[in-house]
Design a protein around this nucleic acid. Structure first.
Length: 607
DNA sequence: TCGTGACGCACC
DNA sequence: AAACGGTGCGTCACGA
């Protein structure tokens, strides 16, 4: 046994590094003495846990004062004893436990279902205490950020710095250090050994800080994280030939337009500076400015001058390059050995707790107008991709939360809400629609004018018209702002405390609506799981859930799922829509008349 | 060389 | 009176 003593403020923390099998009895005694609750963490090869040959190099258990580091990479008794301890400890305190649980499931075959019920996640607790990231003026939710704020800045610096120093020592990039570092490296052992201690301490310290109204969310958030992890574990099959074809096609497009740009004297289409200069040189005036005062070169400008060959080349070239790398290369590079892709779902991503879906399946950014990207995701043999989405989820939630009579009535009777706004304001429907959405986002007439491309006067009329049609919405927003000014935070309908910036009280309405909507989807995901839909759920995307069902039962099963997902909030039905796509996710996004080579049919309906 | 901020763009 | 909310990611440009 190697012992490292470390000072955390006034406390001494002892890190015991298991070196050979004769050290294991002492580890057993430690686990037995602490079997009610222990901090836990692993150190792995990297982040791509789905790759063959991926290793869990170290596993660490600890309480507030002591930890044990075990070299699981050496397999045998070390790995076996860690698996036993993981199965035995009543409460496992982890920082972002989803990651370690997925690793253990994949690498060791420790079923995630056996670990999640005993997880206490310090990140979930921290989010319920203060949902803001560091950039938003909060503490943040990473182990380093939480340690720095709640425990010790010195320890945060040292632990973070230690891996940077080791990378330097080994002459590799920081991201490459994990598979290379020797298991017995003392700095690595220290870094590893402190993690479960910090997670354990943070959970203990932060749990009492959860606002009383939000305490009931703790169990729910852990369940939700678990169901999301099960979806991540399963993954979605990629249609590799399709994805490869698109990547190659986009590469050709990119090369072509880069050559066009080069002939016209522009070296780098991705450099905003170069692009700006080149466009001005062609006699085009750039009026827009970025927040830092630079000439604004964006989609809007390029589209306005799409007749200019250089503008067209920049626009098309950039678009192709971005699409290729973000969606197609990403998919090809992150497949597992069965050509499945595994998203990273952060079940409490945003400050409103809205989930984020990123990594190998950045579903949040998939183009919604066509099948280009979604076509690359296919159902398993004999299955069909299906989806249930909420109809105008945020507006229905707004109706429920505000209690606006007219808005509730519109949803009850199925009348067109945006037309009501349009009629009230004397504007066209699309402007009325934008006024509604923009109001939920806290926007005003100026934003509407620039976004909808209408005059300031029309924009003012549209916003006024929206509030005239739905007067309770304005009152509700004002009530929330008052609450935010008084307390510095609002409490959502589910009891979540959301801090509101003093300078932006108008954001309170959006927070309330966005967060309540997220919880509508979150509760639905748990109901689906409890009803036995777990094996068929593939991915949540904000206001929808993607499934695959056996093709012969697809419509019936999706319809049943849609029933389960529906709920009534303050008398407003948060209604759902059913979609049965086909063999690929893209089948639902195909244009009318477009032929689908997978399903071997011509699509009749436009999305 | 690496990390980070700025920017732009894909979404809900 | 007015106020554009929330993400992830790729690239460039800059500074430690």
């Amino acid at each position: 046994m190697k012992v490292i003593d470390y000072k955390l403020n006034a406390d001494l923390v002892r890190i015991n590094v298991v070196e050979d099998e004769s050290d294991l009895p002492e580890f057993h005694r430690f686990v037995e003495a602490n079997h009610n609750a222990l901090g836990f963490d692993t150190e792995t090869d990297g982040l791509s846990w789905w790759e063959d040959g991926f290793r869990i190099r170290l596993a660490q258990f600890g309480n507030a004062y002591e930890s044990y580091v075990l070299p699981t990479e050496r397999g045998g008794q070390f790995q076996e004893d860690v698996i036993k301890a993981v199965g035995w400890v009543k409460k496992l305190v982890m920082q972002n436990g989803t990651y370690d649980i997925l690793c253990m499931d994949r690498v060791w075959g420790v079923k995630a279902e056996t670990v999640f019920p005993r997880l206490l996640d310090s990140r979930i607790i921290a989010h319920l205490v203060d949902s803001r990231g560091r950039k938003d003026g909060g503490i943040g939710h990473s182990l380093e950020e939480l340690t720095r704020h709640y425990l010790s800045a010195a320890v945060a610096d040292e632990v973070k710095g230690s891996m940077t120093a080791i990378a330097k020592e080994l002459r590799v990039k920081k991201a490459e250090v994990w598979p290379l570092i020797p298991l017995e490296h003392e700095g690595f052992n220290l870094y590893a050994g402190m993690d479960p201690v910090l997670a354990y301490r943070l959970a203990k310290l932060l749990k009492p800080k959860i606002p009383a109204t939000a305490r009931k969310l703790l169990a729910y958030e852990h369940e939700l994280a678990a169901v999301c992890a099960y979806m991540v574990r399963k993954g979605i099959k990629a249609d590799v030939p399709y994805v490869r074809d698109r990547a190659n096609e986009l590469a050709r497009t990119e090369v072509h337009f880069k050559e066009v740009a080069a002939r016209l004297g522009l070296e780098n289409i991705n450099s905003p500076k170069q692009v700006g200069e080149a466009i001005v040189a062609r006699g085009i005036t750039i009026t827009g400015r970025t927040p830092t005062g630079q000439p604004k070169v964006d989609d809007h400008l390029l589209k306005a001058h799409i007749d200019d060959p250089l503008c067209e080349a920049i626009y098309q070239g950039k678009k192709a390059a971005k699409a290729k790398s973000t969606w197609f290369d990403n998919a090809l590079n992150n497949r597992d050995s069965d050509d499945r892709l595994h998203a990273a779902i952060n079940s409490m991503g945003a400050r409103t707790a809205r989930m984020s879906i990123s990594g190998a399946i950045p579903a949040q950014t998939f183009p919604s107008g066509d099948s280009l990207v979604r076509r690359g995701f296919i159902a398993d043999e004999g299955m069909s991709i299906c989806a249930v989405d909420y109809k105008a989820q945020e507006l229905r939630v707004l109706a429920a939360l505000s209690g606006d009579k007219a808005m509730k009535k519109a949803f009850r009777e199925g009348t067109d809400l945006h037309q009501i706004t349009a009629d009230s304001a004397g504007v066209d429907r699309s402007t009325g629609k934008m006024a509604g959405f923009l109001t939920v986002y806290g926007g005003g007439w100026a934003a509407l004018a620039s976004q909808a491309g209408v005059s300031e006067e029309t924009a003012r009329r549209a916003i006024d018209g929206f509030f005239a049609a739905f007067p309770r919405v304005k009152e509700y927003s004002e009530e929330l702002q008052k609450e935010a000014r008084r307390n510095g935070y609002i409490t959502t309908i589910t009891g979540r405390r959301l801090l509101v910036d003093r300078q932006r009280p108008y954001a309170a309405l959006n927070y309330a609506v966005q967060s309540a909507s997220r919880d509508v989807t979150g509760r639905a995901i748990i109901r689906l799981f409890e009803a036995g839909y777990g094996p068929f759920m593939l991915l949540p995307v904000h206001d929808e859930v993607i499934f695959q069902f056996p093709s012969e039962h697809a419509l019936a099963a999706t319809t049943k799922a849609a029933q389960i997902m529906k709920e009534t909030m303050s008398g407003v039905l948060i209604d759902t829509d059913v979609s049965v796509y086909g063999k690929s996710w893209g089948c639902g996004y195909m244009a009318k008349g477009q032929y689908c080579d997978l399903c071997d049919i011509i699509h009749q309906e436009e999305k």
